[in-house]
Amino acid sequence: MTYRLIQLAPGAYDLLLNSEVIGSVVKSGYRSTNTTWTAELLEDLPRRKRPAPFIEIEHSFLTLEDLCGWLGSPQVKSNFGRSPVGRGA
């Protein structure tokens, strides 16, 4: 499965699977401390029909890099001319 993230605004992304929007990724909290990145599916699918690695409808992470690692290092398209994800993610 190939995931991609398309940035909509700072801290907000569409989550695509095989070119179809299936969810979103959003940042909540302030500055570099007290932030959470959440990947959430648009549909409340039964557990057996959720795309891997989703076990729940939403999963939260401390960093965007951790979230991207969990998704298998998706391509991230930034609307600001630079990638928001570190090169190691």
Rank of each mutant, 00 (worst) to 15 (best):
R87C: 08
Y13R: 02
G69S: 06
L16W: 11
W37T: 06
S60R: 12
N18S: 05
Y30H: 11
G72E: 06
S78Q: 04
V26F: 08
G81V: 01
L16I: 06
P46V: 11
L71H: 07
T33A: 06
R4H: 03
T63N: 05
D14M: 02
K27G: 07
D44W: 07
K77N: 09
E40H: 12
R87A: 11
Y3A: 05
V25Y: 09
V21D: 01
V26D: 01
S60P: 01
L8T: 09
P46Q: 03
S73D: 14
L42F: 13
L41W: 08
R31I: 10
P46N: 10
I6L: 06
S24N: 08
E65V: 00
G88C: 01
R82A: 06
A89Y: 00
L64A: 13
P53D: 10
L17T: 13
R50Q: 00
I6E: 00
Y30G: 12
R47L: 04
V21H: 01
E43H: 07
D14A: 04
P74L: 04
N18F: 01
P84V: 00
C68A: 09
V25D: 11
S19R: 15
L62N: 04
K27F: 02
L42G: 00
L64Y: 13
A89P: 02
T35E: 07
G11F: 00
F61P: 00
V21W: 00
L41V: 08
R48A: 12
G88Q: 02
K77M: 11
L16P: 01
G72R: 09
I57F: 02
Y30A: 11
G72I: 14
G81S: 02
K49P: 12
W37Y: 04
E43A: 09
W70H: 11
L62R: 03
R82V: 01
S19P: 03
L62P: 07
E58D: 15
R82C: 06
I22V: 13
H59L: 10
L62H: 05
R48G: 02
F61I: 01
R48W: 08
G29V: 02
D14G: 04
L41R: 04
S83Q: 05
V85Y: 00
G86N: 10
L16Q: 15
W70Y: 06
S28R: 13
L42E: 10
S19F: 11
T2H: 06
L42C: 06
V21N: 03
I55Q: 05
G23I: 09
E20T: 05
I55G: 02
L71S: 06
F80Y: 11
G29W: 00
P53A: 14
S73L: 09
T2K: 10
G23V: 09
P51G: 00
F54P: 15
